[in-house]
Amino acid sequence: MREITFAQAAMEALVEEMERDPKIFHMSTDAPDALVEKFGESRVRATPIAESALTGMAIGAASSGFRPIVDWRQVTFAFVAMDQIVNQAAKIHYMFGGQAQFPILYRASVGGGGRSAAQHSQSPYSMFMNMAGLKITLASTPYDVKGLLKSAIRDNNPVIAFESNRLAGLKGDVPQEDYTVPIGKAEVKREGTDITVVALAWQVQEALAAAETLAAEGVSVEVVDPRTLIPMDSETIRASVRKTGRLIVADEAGPTAGASAEIATLVTEDPDTFSCLKAPPKRICALQVPIPYSPVLEDHVFPDRTKIVAGVREVLGIG
């Protein structure tokens, strides 16, 4: 198999799907060259900076038989389109009694680490998780991002694909052949027996590194990647916790009303899983502040492999 980056894998998904299905077109405020060269300016539209309009136009085009892709670029720019996301895209299928389908892919990068300060460093996926009617993916590897984007494009509902900007350059094995990663299926990224770390996006990579460090000390960490936030594969997560009896959730977003809170609740509200717990669940998240600019401040705010290692030791009561 060949190694390509997360960003390349994502772009491959778009190219392959657009080759497969002429009903797919792409709108963003800057049109990606790789797509324009292949598919031309009509199918790959450079638009005015009008994210609200693009988000809504995708809904109308989808109802007319197209499968639009709107790249908001950063989640930051999706906020000007909140009405179209929350009041329209999320609700339109349900509110009209299921009359029409709205196959739309909205893409947005999330995450920090770029010294870009508060407005350009954020991971607010839990805000969107709260809106019934959307599906939400959050990949952690090149393989997953390609497979998830393909599933998202083929899905007959609005799907938001959040992609961690820290992962853009991450390399990994990606097959040449067509494949998909199903929406709603978590994956155990590393098997272990002492503790489950449910990690999201970039934190999966950090948790895997932490697991490696801890393995040298004889601690066996299981790393579970939900891969989709909505629908959430609670069964895979619970099964892992029933096996290990301990849970850490690692998320680059802040903890308050976050995906981490949802995951912890899915585990503890299930009687069978709750009865297996040997320790209270722990969350390792960003500090609940807007992301600061100065490297010293920013690094202090985010969770990383060191904090995960320390958290595992704490939950296990070792050192």
Partner: peptide, 10 residues
């Protein structure tokens, strides 16, 4: 307004 503009684009 933008939704139906998308129908026009379609």
């Amino acid at each position: 307004i933008s939704i139906v503009t998308g129908a026009g684009l379609a």
